[in-house]
Design a protein around this nucleic acid. Structure first.
Lengths: 246, 246
DNA sequence: GTGGCGATTATGTATATACATATTGAAACG
DNA sequence: CGTTTCAATATGTATATACATAATCGCCAC
């Protein structure tokens, strides 16, 4: 390798930028699937004939953007690609269904109390392990399933949920009446239905679904994480706003 | 300055991180107003007793986050608060793509001026027939299509759009700079890709997609209707809020 | 087996250095 | 007087190096 050789004659783009876009191209194109281990820093620096620092700069940015996950001693791995933006609005399913003029019905499918596992903690953004309540429910519009609900409740924040079976009342209205929320985060995306969702919503596996995930905090404490899944033809989120000034 | 003196005994947080948060604190608190020139890299490196590279790392991140603007030979300056209405920022696709660290590219696929048909009037909520501009565009992240855009512009509300080809600039930024909007409505849903969308986004027919439609009004006049379609694996909308009313 | 423990390894952060690039301001020139 | 040139300056990108840190692997003792 030459000493201090600047500007790799790469059309104005800096090297770490080129490395970055090469790798993200591989990821977004699917050539490197989620879970795939991307080459080590020292391998890439050999491949691109540059220093490890340059590779590190690119990989750090990819990690910050959420495309890859880095693990010491193990390497860097492709994550589920996702970009971020913001949208607003909150919804109550009973109200939505009744607005359609259809009879609403609620069904609790499952309920488990357990000590939070790693996935639970990730979903709730919990630091330490603790008791959680896991719920699975369905919401019907007329005879058709309208939405599937998977929910986690942090029992450290809402201990009285232990005594509720959620057979007659859905978790959302129960929580809203009890726990004032100070912050909420929504994630909205499209997915293909997996087998479980397909069965729950009476649709084909792989059929497009809208997924709305919501995380709620009350005074800095994570309260609940919920994932609603709707069949594509059953649901449109609507949000109206006026501009706010800076 | 000492030689290779690691871990400045600063409670686990890295130095560049501390510099970054110190400066953003100054900016967000208002102590350094927009337009204020923040200290030069060499001044900060003296102040923090560290190398210029470390300061550079912090400032580069601040620039990428949009808090400051850097000008060669002149220094770094606090930017005007970018608190554009959440909605606008949301669907500025260029910003989303660049936040991923990927090169953004825009392409106009088609442009037609016509008298509004029934479908156009439904989409724009127009009462009477009138001239509209129909556009089809694509937004790329790296080499992959990131979003497909179908747009209608009400020429009665924005007559000067007739003279714009939209080859170099995308409709969103063009409109934002020209037409103040007073109200917007969003509709978000999942669909299976039809043939046209599948071809445009390099995905299979029927593959799940996220569709975001936006209608905008300016002083009661419908301005534009736009439909963005994203491949399922490329996009997640994220929104955080605090309760403002109820 | 299995439980601990040290060696190994990949990433994380920092350093000093080198040169490129863009921009500014002032000096030199026609 | 305007223009051109040039040096100074701040940022931009890259290098080689050094050491910290965390996680894993394999070895060894029990």
């Amino acid at each position: 390798m030459s000493v201090i050789e600047t500007a790799d004659a790469e059309g104005g783009v800096s090297l770490h930028q080129r490395i970055l876009s090469d790798i993200s191209e591989k990821i977004l194109s699917g050539a490197w699937a989620p879970g795939h281990r991307i080459p080590f820093e020292h391998e890439l620096s050999a491949q691109y004939n540059c220093s490890r620092m340059t590779v590190n700069k690119a990989l750090s940015q990819l990690a910050k953007a959420g495309l890859i996950e880095r693990r010491r001693r193990s390497g860097s791995f492709v994550r589920q690609p996702q970009s971020q933006a913001a949208v607003l609005e909150i919804h109550d399913i009973r109200v939505e269904v009744e607005a359609l003029g259809l009879p609403y019905r609620y069904e609790r499918v499952a309920r488990h109390k357990r000590r939070s596992d790693a996935e639970d903690r990730a979903l709730l953004e919990l630091g330490a392990a603790g008791p959680v309540l896991a719920l699975e429910c369905r919401h019907f519009a007329g005879k058709r399933p309208f939405a599937h609900e998977q929910r986690l409740i942090n029992l450290a924040a809402v201990p009285e949920a232990v005594d509720e079976e959620f057979l007659a009342i859905a978790p959302s209205p129960w929580l809203i009446g009890r726990v004032p929320w100070s912050e909420a985060e929504h994630r909205i995306r499209a997915v293909g239905a997996d087998k479980r969702i397909a069965a729950a919503l009476y649709i084909a596996t792989g059929a497009p679904c809208l997924v709305v995930e919501r995380r709620t905090w009350s005074a800095e404490h994570p309260v609940t994480h919920v994932r609603f899944t709707y069949a594509a033809d059953s649901h449109t989120l609507v949000a109206r706003f006026r501009p706010s000034q800076g």
